[in-house]
Design a protein around this nucleic acid. Structure first.
Lengths: 115, 115
DNA sequence: AAGCTATGTAAGCTCGTTCTTAAACACTTA
DNA sequence: TAAGTGTTTAAGAACGAGCTTACATAGCTT
């Protein structure tokens, strides 16, 4: 998930993923969509995406067809669901904690940070 | 949205966001959770997050309380929804395009490589 | 005002990322 | 097998990200 989010941080790689939404695309065809970049540059981006589990490759004769790996995408999106989920439960805890804190108002230096 | 995805790519910043799920936290309290990092490092991460629209700051006397900015988070998540959405419409287009391509099978060298 | 606490900014270093060119690899066709 | 496509790998340059230390700023407290 870590690698996927890092991979997605790059705008070129996001554009590549967008390109793959509709189905398989050959590496060369992908590269053609980025006139500003050399083919090796695109190839390296594809490698990063593959390593991150966001795309899969398939050989078709000479060419390599890349396709989206939706599981990988969902896994990356997991961060957002994690950010949103269980919100009520945590809010309850937070409220209790805050109440306790407000009552005692302890500001002493007892080990606040665990290992 | 670009900056937000970039910001989220960093694990420390993700951890900070997680920390803020439950409500406001002061900069110093955040920094305490990262014993491996100096306080300026955390401060800089917070700046990046603020710039990306993922957190908001509020002054409370001496301290600065950071809180999550859910709109920013949703905007960042927009990439994923964009990846998933409108899939059927695009698939239809892709099918047509593929059909046309398969029929004519044009592979000639019309200016593929510009300057 | 002086000094403390809480926090941000600046400057500089290190390391990782992204690009380029040159070369290698793999498959196809003559 | 030799030449031709399509694509990746290698090596190195340039740039940016993230860290640290030192310093600056802002508010509170005496």
């Amino acid at each position: 998930m870590d690698e996927a989010l890092r991979a997605i941080a790059d705008p070129t790689r996001r554009a590549i993923l967008m390109l793959l939404r509709d189905g398989e695309v050959a590496a060369g065809d992908i590269a053609q969509r980025f006139p500003a970049l050399s083919r090796p540059a695109v190839s390296q981006h594809l490698r990063v995406l593959a390593h991150a589990g966001l795309v899969e490759v398939r050989r078709d004769g000479n060419r390599r067809l890349y396709r989206l790996r939706r599981e990988g995408l969902a896994e990356a999106a997991g961060f957002f669901t994690e950010m949103w989920s269980d919100r009520l439960g945590r809010l309850k805890h937070a409220a209790e904690r805050e109440e306790r804190q407000q009552r005692t108002h302890m500001r002493d230096e007892d080990e606040r940070g665990p290992a």
